[in-house]
Computed example of a mutant assay.
Amino acid sequence: MNLDGQDIEDLVHLAGDIGTVHQQVEQSPNVITEQERNDLDQFHQDAKQESQILAQEALTANESNIQESAEVSSTSFWSFLGSCGINLVLPFINGVMLGFGEILAHEIGFRYNWAGAKVSL
Rank of each mutant, 00 (worst) to 15 (best):
L54H: 05
A105Y: 01
V96G: 09
S64A: 14
L88I: 12
D41K: 10
E63K: 15
L40H: 03
V21S: 11
V25D: 02
I103T: 09
Q45T: 08
F92T: 15
F77N: 10
H13V: 06
I32T: 01
R37P: 01
Q6P: 01
G82R: 09
V119E: 02
P29M: 00
Q42S: 11
E71C: 10
G85P: 03
V72P: 04
A105Q: 03
M97I: 14
S69R: 04
R111C: 04
N2F: 04
Q6T: 09
S120K: 15
L98C: 03
V119L: 01
S79V: 11
E34I: 08
G95W: 07
L81E: 06
T20M: 13
S73V: 11
D41F: 02
A15W: 12
I86S: 07
L81R: 07
G82Y: 12
N65Q: 14
S83H: 08
E63G: 12
M97C: 10
A58T: 09
E57S: 04
E34R: 10
E36K: 05
Q27N: 10
F92D: 12
M1A: 05
D10L: 04
S120D: 13
L11E: 12
D10V: 04
K48A: 06
I108M: 00
Q23P: 00
I108N: 05
G116T: 01
S64T: 11
G16S: 15
W78R: 15
T33N: 06
L81W: 03
E68S: 15
E102C: 11
T75M: 06
I32W: 00
W78M: 15
L54T: 06
N65F: 15
F92A: 14
L81Y: 05
H106Q: 13
E71Y: 12
N94T: 08
S83D: 11
S74I: 12
D4R: 05
S83R: 12
Q45C: 09
A61K: 09
L14T: 05
D10E: 01
